[in-house]
Measured scan of single mutants.
Amino acid sequence: HHHHHGSGALAALHAEGPLAGLPVTRSDARVLIFNEWEERKKSDPWLRLDMSDKAIFRRYPHLR
């Protein structure tokens, strides 16, 4: 159930192989992290948004 927010940013994801479903670039990863943060913020208003490279690598090590 993907609803768009204002920016309408869509992340490019790997379609197949071992990385299927994972973001292709760091900016794609940022979109995913932001979208998930927006969702989680509803139940956790104090949740901090962390889109640093460090956060991205921790989450998606293949982007190193």
Rank of each mutant, 00 (worst) to 15 (best):
H1S: 13
H1G: 13
H1F: 11
H1W: 07
H1D: 12
H1L: 15
H2C: 08
H2Q: 11
H2K: 11
H2V: 13
H2I: 13
H2W: 10
H2E: 10
H2A: 06
H2S: 08
H3W: 11
H3F: 12
H3S: 12
H3N: 07
H4F: 14
H4E: 10
H4P: 12
H4A: 14
H4R: 10
H4S: 11
H4T: 11
H4K: 10
H5N: 13
H5Q: 14
H5P: 15
H5D: 06
H5Y: 15
H5V: 09
H5G: 07
G6W: 14
G6H: 11
G6M: 11
G6D: 08
G6V: 15
G6L: 15
G6R: 04
S7P: 09
S7Q: 10
S7Y: 14
G8P: 10
G8W: 07
G8N: 13
G8D: 10
G8Y: 09
G8F: 11
G8Q: 13
G8H: 14
A9Q: 13
A9R: 03
A9F: 14
A9N: 14
A9V: 13
L10F: 12
L10T: 12
A11T: 03
A11D: 03
A11G: 06
A11F: 07
A11W: 03
A11C: 07
A11I: 11
A12G: 10
A12D: 09
A12E: 13
A12W: 12
A12Y: 11
A12L: 14
A12I: 14
A12N: 15
A12P: 03
L13I: 14
L13F: 09
L13G: 02
L13Q: 05
L13A: 05
L13K: 04
L13S: 05
H14C: 04
H14S: 02
H14K: 03
H14I: 10
H14A: 02
H14G: 03
H14L: 03
H14Y: 08
H14W: 14
A15M: 15
A15S: 14
A15W: 11
A15Q: 14
A15F: 08
A15E: 14
A15Y: 11
A15H: 12
E16H: 10
E16Q: 15
E16T: 09
E16I: 12
E16S: 10
G17N: 05
G17E: 03
G17L: 02
G17H: 02
G17S: 03
P18W: 04
P18E: 08
P18I: 08
P18A: 09
P18D: 08
P18V: 09
P18Y: 07
L19H: 06
L19M: 08
L19G: 03
L19Y: 14
L19P: 02
L19C: 07
L19R: 03
L19E: 04
L19N: 10
A20S: 09
A20I: 12
A20E: 09
A20Q: 14
A20N: 07
A20G: 06
A20F: 12
A20R: 14
G21F: 06
G21P: 02
G21R: 05
L22R: 02
L22W: 04
L22E: 03
L22G: 02
L22K: 07
L22S: 03
L22C: 07
L22P: 01
L22A: 04
L22T: 04
P23T: 01
P23H: 00
P23M: 01
P23E: 00
P23F: 00
P23R: 00
V24P: 01
V24E: 04
V24I: 08
V24N: 02
V24M: 15
V24K: 13
T25G: 15
T25H: 05
T25Q: 05
T25V: 02
R26V: 12
R26N: 10
R26I: 15
R26Q: 07
R26M: 15
R26G: 04
R26Y: 08
S27H: 11
S27W: 14
S27A: 08
S27R: 14
S27C: 10
S27M: 14
S27Y: 15
D28T: 02
D28M: 03
D28G: 02
D28I: 02
D28Y: 03
A29T: 00
A29S: 01
A29H: 00
A29W: 00
A29Q: 00
A29V: 01
R30G: 02
R30C: 09
R30L: 08
R30W: 05
R30H: 05
V31R: 15
V31T: 08
V31I: 14
V31Y: 10
V31Q: 10
L32F: 05
L32S: 03
L32A: 03
L32V: 08
I33C: 02
I33S: 01
I33K: 01
I33V: 07
I33M: 12
I33N: 00
I33W: 02
F34W: 13
F34Y: 14
F34H: 08
F34Q: 05
N35F: 14
N35Y: 07
N35E: 09
N35D: 05
N35G: 08
E36L: 08
E36A: 07
E36Q: 08
E36K: 04
E36Y: 04
E36C: 04
W37L: 02
W37I: 02
W37Q: 02
W37M: 02
W37A: 02
E38H: 13
E38W: 15
E38G: 05
E38L: 15
E38M: 15
E38N: 13
E38R: 15
E38T: 11
E39H: 07
E39K: 06
E39W: 05
E39A: 08
R40K: 08
R40E: 10
R40T: 05
R40V: 03
K41P: 01
K41Q: 08
K41N: 15
K41F: 09
K41S: 13
K41A: 12
K41I: 15
K42M: 08
K42S: 10
K42H: 09
K42R: 07
K42I: 08
K42C: 05
K42P: 07
K42Y: 05
K42L: 10
K42G: 07
S43A: 12
S43M: 14
S43K: 06
S43H: 12
D44P: 04
D44T: 08
D44G: 06
P45M: 09
P45R: 10
W46D: 14
W46T: 15
W46M: 14
W46E: 11
L47H: 12
L47S: 11
L47N: 04
L47F: 11
R48H: 12
R48G: 07
R48C: 07
R48E: 10
R48Y: 05
R48P: 15
L49H: 02
L49A: 02
L49F: 06
L49T: 03
L49M: 05
L49P: 05
L49W: 03
D50V: 05
D50Q: 04
D50E: 08
D50P: 01
D50W: 04
D50Y: 03
D50M: 02
M51P: 02
M51I: 15
M51W: 10
M51D: 07
M51S: 08
M51K: 04
M51T: 10
S52W: 01
S52R: 06
S52G: 04
S52N: 03
S52K: 06
S52E: 02
S52Y: 01
S52V: 02
S52F: 01
D53V: 10
D53G: 05
D53Y: 09
K54A: 11
K54I: 10
K54S: 13
K54Y: 08
K54M: 10
K54R: 09
K54N: 12
K54H: 09
K54F: 10
A55I: 08
A55Y: 08
A55V: 11
A55P: 01
A55K: 06
I56A: 01
I56T: 03
I56R: 00
I56P: 00
I56S: 00
F57Q: 08
F57M: 13
F57E: 13
F57W: 05
F57D: 11
F57P: 00
R58H: 14
R58G: 10
R58P: 01
R58Y: 09
R58D: 15
R59A: 11
R59G: 02
R59W: 03
R59I: 10
R59H: 06
R59M: 05
R59N: 06
R59S: 07
R59Y: 07
R59C: 05
R59K: 14
Y60E: 00
Y60A: 01
Y60R: 00
Y60M: 01
Y60G: 00
Y60I: 00
Y60F: 11
Y60C: 00
Y60N: 00
Y60L: 01
P61A: 03
P61M: 02
P61R: 02
P61H: 02
P61D: 02
P61N: 02
H62G: 06
H62V: 00
H62T: 01
H62Q: 01
H62P: 00
L63Y: 00
L63R: 00
L63M: 02
L63T: 01
L63D: 00
L63C: 02
R64P: 05
R64E: 12
R64A: 14
R64T: 11
R64H: 07
R64F: 13
